[in-house]
């Protein structure tokens, strides 16, 4: 058999073998029904948040003293109004903007810090002990308590909530990244790169990091759910967004005073939080399964 012939047959065999990494992951993800439901919810929410000014008939701060405590299904206000006559639908939609922005920015800051620390700890043995002890220290505090501590120092505002929750996201991310760096750096291609003279920065950023993306994506998705829930909790406690901001947690806090007369004021933002958190969690779980090579059956 000539060499050329052998190569020809080999390449035709391997060509139809596999799709790209992303295509394969998406294929596996859509087989998971819950994850699809989650994706749909997230998609709808993102669309609503982006197109908020165009789909509501009233502004979120617009008061109407003649139409207070309207129930669900009222004419013109299909989710009712609150004690000031503000349209609930408008407030929920604008609230989703806040939740998504806070979620995305906390996860982004958390990932930035966590990935940096995780890469350094996983790759450089000497830094490992120091960084991971700091991470352990951060882990020792219950999350909400740590966030409250930070807010107590910085003052109450939505920006400070973002900072607090970001800091609290860093240790979890650092651990996950460190773990995958430890396994990826033992791969032979890292040794091969060093043998051709590649430096540490190149190896870390161009080769190790791209191969750690799967656990990072899963972490980011589930972390979104936690971040949104924590923001709502802190705002509910009065430490985050302040009234009249249409933040869901703050809306529950305002609505609980009217629990008997107008339950929809507290229930609707509660359902919104629940749906969002549920959606991100099931998508996160779905991604975990889709990205885990051991789940291929």
């Amino acid at each position: 058999m000539s060499t050329d012939l052998a190569i020809e047959t080999n390449s035709s065999n391997s060509e139809k073998k596999k799709d790209g990494f992303i295509v394969e992951t998406v294929k596996k993800l859509v087989q998971n029904k819950l994850a699809v439901i989650g994706l749909v919810i997230i998609f709808i929410q993102v669309v609503l948040a982006i197109s908020a000014p165009f789909i509501v008939s009233y502004g979120p701060y617009e008061q109407d003293p003649t139409a207070t405590y309207l129930g669900v299904g009222s004419e013109g206000h299909f989710l009712g109004t609150d004690n000031y006559g503000r349209d609930m639908w408008s407030r929920i939609v604008y609230g989703s903007r806040i939740s998504l922005i806070v979620g995305v920015s906390t996860v982004a800051i958390g990932l930035l810090g966590g990935i940096t620390l995780g890469l350094l700890a996983g790759y450089f043995k000497k830094l490992d002990a120091i960084i991971m002890r700091i991470v352990d220290l951060l882990f020792a505090f219950p999350g909400i308590l740590l966030a409250m501590l930070i807010i107590a120092m910085l003052g109450t505002s939505l920006v400070n909530v973002v900072i607090a929750i970001s800091i609290w996201s860093i240790p979890g991310c650092a651990r996950i990244v460190r773990g995958s760096v430890l396994s990826v750096k033992k791969q032979e291609y890292v040794m091969a790169l060093r043998s051709v003279g590649a430096g540490n920065t190149r190896i870390l950023l161009k080769h190790i990091l791209p191969n750690c993306t799967a656990p990072i994506i899963v972490f980011a998705t589930t972390r979104m759910a936690t971040a949104i829930l924590s923001t709502a909790s802190l705002s509910y406690l009065g430490l985050g967004a302040q009234p009249p901001t249409p933040e869901w947690g703050a809306m529950i806090a305002a609505g609980q005073n009217f629990m008997w007369d107008a339950p929809h004021m507290a229930v609707i933002p509660g359902v919104a939080i629940m749906l969002t958190v549920f959606a991100f969690n099931v998508v996160g779980d779905g991604l975990r399964d889709a990205l885990d090579p051991n789940m291929n059956v």
Partner: peptide
């Protein structure tokens, strides 16, 4: 290297992987 499956970065195209050697040196 021994293992031709493990000694290449799975996320990098072959052409880029080989070019990298020249980028470095």
């Amino acid at each position: 290297f021994q293992d031709p499956f493990a000694s290449l970065n799975p996320r990098q195209k072959i052409g880029k992987a080989l070019e990298e050697v020249f980028v470095i040196h």
